[in-house]
Amino acid sequence: MTFIEIIYGIIFQPASTLKYLSGSKPLVLAVIAFLFTALWNMIINMGLNNARGFTASLPEGYIGVYLFIGLLISLAVLAGSAAIYNLLGELIYKQANGRGILTCLAFGFVPGILEPPLQYALTLLNFNYLNISISIMAFLWVMTLQIVGIREALVIQTSQALLLFVLPWLIFVLLIVALVMLVGMMVPGII
């Protein structure tokens, strides 16, 4: 599949395209698509903040550094997520496909490219009340694609992929709650 076919497939035939990607694993292409999407989103979001009247607090000349650090963090989150899902997949379902998961997660993020421009347009047209629904729709779209990507990469059921997707976040929330409770018990009067 060519790059254009992959992008078309991610939008209109996500399951079969993600199945293809989980096997062919074009990682370099996936990382380029992911970085381009992340960069585009950061740039449009900066314009969006200006349009909303949030004055930029970045010193002049530091925009490049801000974008570079943003891309590095995005890439680290992507790689970390893929590693965690792969590890959990191997532990729970005895199925591993790290490179396939990474490729699917990266391409699954691509439709998120539509969110900031739509928000920008809505802000300029003074339809600010629609912004939250656009954000939720974009989030759900990307999340669904990433769950389907995990499912196809590990050859598991949708429910199993969903569990794998939410498990790290569930553990994280439980850890935070446990930590707060622990601190509350150690320091009387906080809770």
């Binding site: 599949m1 035939q13 399951a15 079969s16 395209t17 993600l18 199945k19 293809y20 990607l21 096997g23 062919s24 196809e152």
Partner: peptide
């Protein structure tokens, strides 16, 4: 039955 697999293996 999965188009993605057929496409992948066909290209390969």
């Amino acid at each position: 039955d999965q188009k993605g697999v057929r496409r992948l293996l066909e290209e390969l």
